[in-house]
Design a protein around this nucleic acid. Structure first.
Lengths: 102, 102
DNA sequence: TCATATCGTAAGTCATAACTTACGGTAAGT
DNA sequence: ACTTACCGTAAGTTATGACTTACGATATGA
């Protein structure tokens, strides 16, 4: 659930596709393996990384496991990006102020 | 400037640290190399990746090159994350509606 | 209980990515 | 013109990460 885990999870294009697909419709592992052109274990490994990062959650349904977006898991990403934005903004303001002092 | 470039750029912890540092204060390459414990070329390579992703911009100053946050570059990240959030929300609403139909 | 469906994990392979050293290139000062 | 400061790129090395096959575990239905 660290920033590192979250951004590592989002770095892989396949995982972003999986995430996008699950966002529009919760799905089982086999379903995902069908749509993306990789083996089922590969999907499982991706899902583990996404789940550990807090971006997905699972609900067992029979022998299946339905994965769905954990909307709360997306918040830290926004917060992190917004942090950069705010820091850059205040740095810029300071820069202007210092310029004005000359 | 693709999503892939942006998330790849953000995936490396060293690059996130560089970004954070530059966000609070625009800096030269040598300055960054001092603070992080790596060689100057390594920093240059990271800065290229961050710049190509649209997250940084450069302004030459003498022989130095001052890197600063490109605030506009952060917007796509938020937009992308918000997209997941919205998709998941509508998917959830559809789920509720379908449940109500039974 | 036995067979089937669905899935997670382990082990091994291969590409990628982060680092280093070496080199070349441009701007500023003498 | 020459030296110095500062930087980008190329080449090579090493660790990491995404994939596959093989195996084991659990839940469902006959």
């Amino acid at each position: 659930m660290t920033y590192d885990m979250i951004f590592t999870a989002l770095a892989d294009p396949r995982r972003r596709n999986i995430l996008q697909q699950i966002a529009t419709q919760p799905m089982s592992v086999a379903q995902l393996a069908d749509q993306h052109n990789v083996s089922r274990p590969a999907i499982s490994q991706h899902l583990k990384i996404l789940t550990d990062a807090g971006l997905l959650s699972v609900t067992p349904k029979g022998t299946k496991r339905i994965y769905q977006i954990n909307r709360d898991g997306l918040a830290p990403v926004r917060a992190y990006i917004d942090g950069f934005w705010d820091d850059a903004l205040t740095a810029f303001q300071d820069h202007i102020i210092n310029q004005a002092k000359d």
